[in-house]
Amino acid sequence: MLMNAIPILKEILQALKDLYEKGEEHVIYINKLPITPEDRELLLDVLGEGQVKITYSSKTQPAEWKETGIFGVWIGIIKNRDDKPVLETIEITYFPKLASAQKEDVQESIKYLEEKISEIETKLKEEEKNV
């Protein structure tokens, strides 16, 4: 029995329009909605499959995002340590936010690269002295 597939599809359509016209992104938390197996089947059938898949390999919270056949619509699944889904989303965005680099991670990368470059420069200077 279909309960929420059509309203969810309409929400996706409006969110796509908002993304295109206003740049606004939207997230639908699927596992927080009462959807039947028939709803899920219809949603997956209408949305189809895209060509991009993003996998976040983490021991504590592995995640996966798949682009649907509708550009700008992504299905995301975040799992727990036991590989069981804890959060399922439909993200209407150009690129899933949770899959993108986080500001703290970029800051950590800056520190790492600064240290590595400094180490290499120091090593090169030492080698030049010994030549």
Rank of each mutant, 00 (worst) to 15 (best):
M1W: 13
M3I: 15
M3H: 12
N4S: 04
N4K: 08
A5T: 11
I6M: 08
I8M: 02
L9G: 07
K10Q: 05
E11A: 09
E11H: 04
L13S: 14
Q14N: 05
K17V: 00
K17W: 07
L19F: 01
E21P: 00
K22H: 04
G23V: 14
E24L: 15
E24A: 15
E25Y: 06
E25A: 09
E25G: 08
E25S: 13
H26I: 13
H26D: 10
I28G: 05
I28L: 08
Y29K: 10
I30Q: 00
L33G: 11
P34L: 10
P34W: 12
I35P: 09
T36R: 01
P37R: 10
E38M: 09
E38D: 15
E38S: 10
E41G: 08
L42I: 04
L42A: 08
L42P: 08
L42K: 12
L42D: 04
L42F: 03
L43V: 04
L43Y: 03
L44F: 14
L44E: 13
L44P: 08
D45R: 00
D45N: 06
D45F: 06
V46W: 04
G48W: 06
G48C: 07
G50Q: 10
Q51K: 14
Q51L: 09
I54E: 04
I54H: 00
I54D: 06
Y56Q: 09
S57W: 13
S57L: 11
S58K: 02
K59H: 07
K59F: 03
T60I: 14
Q61D: 14
Q61T: 14
K66A: 01
K66Y: 04
I70N: 05
F71E: 01
G72Y: 13
V73D: 03
V73L: 05
W74M: 07
W74A: 00
W74H: 03
I77F: 02
I78Y: 06
I78K: 05
K79C: 01
N80M: 01
R81M: 11
D82K: 11
D83T: 04
D83V: 07
K84L: 10
K84I: 14
K84H: 12
P85E: 11
P85V: 11
V86E: 09
L87H: 09
E88G: 10
T89D: 04
E91Y: 11
I92V: 05
T93Q: 04
T93E: 04
Y94F: 07
Y94N: 11
K97R: 07
A99W: 05
S100F: 02
S100E: 10
A101M: 06
A101W: 03
K103T: 09
E104D: 15
S109M: 15
I110R: 00
Y112A: 15
L113G: 11
L113T: 14
E114R: 12
E115W: 10
K116R: 15
K116A: 15
I117C: 06
S118F: 07
I120T: 04
E121V: 12
T122Q: 15
K123H: 14
K123T: 10
L124S: 09
L124M: 03
K125E: 07
K125A: 04
E126M: 08
E127L: 10
E128C: 11
N130Q: 12
V131F: 03
